[in-house]
Amino acid sequence: MALLALVAFGGLLFDDRVLVGAPIWAKPFKFAVSFVAYCMTLAWMLTLLPRGRRVGWWAGTVVTVTSSIEMVLITMQVVRGRRSHFNHETAFDSAVFRVMGLTIAVLWLAALIIAVLLLRARILDRATAWSVRLASLIALVGTAIGFVMTRPTPEQRAAGDDAGIVGAHSVGVSDGGPTMPLTGWSTTGGDLRIAHFFGMHALQVLPLVVLLLVTLAPRFVRLRDDRVRLRLALVASGTYAALFALVTWQAFRGQALLNPDGATLTAAAAIALLGAGSTWAALRTPNRTETAPAAKEFAS
């Protein structure tokens, strides 16, 4: 994936073709970079398993193979100058997209197996354990958003068998309209890729929160207590899940990310207040009998 990201970056520099309103190499570049982060994080999570490592190895191998097939097909369609997703314009294009759908379904099942192994695993650090478990569950839901994108839009249903494109990223507007720089997300309507991206990358964000807490623990006494770190990890996971639900709800209502209405802003404010209040509660000072053993253990 890292090598393919370099190839796709070269395509962005030297291939000026545009497809559905975006540089034709943008999709393989973004997918490759995303898979680098996704697969490296899964690989690290598998090292946390005290048991079931052989099952985890096979599940990880399935993720590797299916993601590779997906990227080969996306890149092939770029070279051909054809859409890879939702494309049923020819029998060959339709077959390519169906294979892509099958590989992602198998990848999702493999990721589900890894999530179940992590839920059952006894990981010594509880903050790490719960951040990894909840991150894997949120990522599964985020990945599943991709399946929702394959549903036909009202216009496509009206066209029936004549619809060459079946499915869309955008909600309320057509794909290929005005977009945000870099991300390519719609600025005029809802975009399910936002929820898809936000959910999948819980895998990186939530474990990084725990890593930050551990890094700061020598400087802040409260963070030396593993129970405080656990509470903060749970708050971070709950807040992230709420934000994921919010951007998903916003996209399904056909609303652009940067053009929220009153309901979206109210929900965002509620999440911010609950998150801040929960963080304050999680940081409350334990009594001395609770703190001393934890601080001693952390120091050792």
Rank of each mutant, 00 (worst) to 15 (best):
A8T: 06
A22N: 14
P23A: 01
K30I: 13
A37C: 13
T41A: 02
L42N: 14
V63A: 07
E70H: 05
M71P: 08
L73C: 04
Q77R: 11
V78F: 01
V78H: 03
A91V: 10
A91P: 05
M100A: 03
G101I: 09
G101N: 06
T103F: 02
A105E: 08
V106G: 00
W108K: 08
I114G: 01
L117A: 08
D125V: 08
R126V: 06
L134H: 00
A135H: 02
G142D: 03
T143E: 14
I145L: 06
F147H: 04
P154C: 11
A159P: 00
A159Q: 03
D162A: 15
V171L: 00
D175T: 07
P178T: 07
P181R: 07
S186H: 09
T187V: 10
T188H: 11
F197E: 11
F198S: 05
M200H: 08
H201K: 07
V210R: 09
L212F: 13
L213E: 01
A217W: 06
D225S: 15
V228T: 15
V228K: 04
R231G: 02
A233K: 10
A241P: 02
L243F: 13
L246N: 09
V247Q: 07
W249L: 13
W249M: 14
F252Y: 10
R253L: 07
G254I: 08
A263C: 12
T264H: 01
A270D: 07
I271A: 00
I271Y: 03
A272H: 11
W280N: 03
A281G: 04
N287E: 09
R288P: 09
T289P: 07
E290C: 07
